[in-house]
């Protein structure tokens, strides 16, 4: 640990950081990686297939152009499922501290 000025530090060691902070940071990186994965899918697929062939009629699946179904609708549904899983199972509950109402109630009780 390197002191840069009186009473200040450069990088705190991981064990000095709150568990809730470390958990939030882990979830943060999961979300960033999720974005990268879905961006790669939609941009990659649509870059290859969204232009269509000159002079050919559009291919339709469920009434929607085929490239939209595979490049957007299906990843959208998977993203919906992943969001549910992330919110319900991966993300941990954390004590956020007191709300203003709780402070007011505590004051009242005191």
């Amino acid at each position: 640990m390197e002191e840069s000025q009186e009473g200040s530090i450069e990088e705190p060691p991981v064990e000095d950081l709150a568990a809730s902070f470390r958990q939030s940071r882990k979830e943060f990186w999961f979300m960033v990686m999720t974005w990268v994965a879905f961006a790669a899918w939609t941009l990659g697929f649509n870059f290859l297939f969204a232009k269509g062939e000159e002079g050919e009629a559009v291919e339709v699946v469920f009434g929607i152009p085929k490239w939209v179904v595979f490049g957007i609708a299906i990843p959208w549904m998977i993203a919906l499922g992943l969001t549910i899983w992330f919110a319900m199972f991966y993300m941990k509950d954390t004590d956020l501290g007191h709300t203003d109402e709780e402070y007011a109630n505590e004051k009242g009780e005191a």
Partner: peptide, 20 residues
């Protein structure tokens, strides 16, 4: 549909990235 496709992960990212 491609222009707006980013919204597929908006609920997770825009709500989750900073909220907690």
């Amino acid at each position: 549909a491609w222009w707006i496709a980013g919204y597929m992960v908006v609920p997770m990212i825009a709500l989750g990235l900073l909220a907690k």
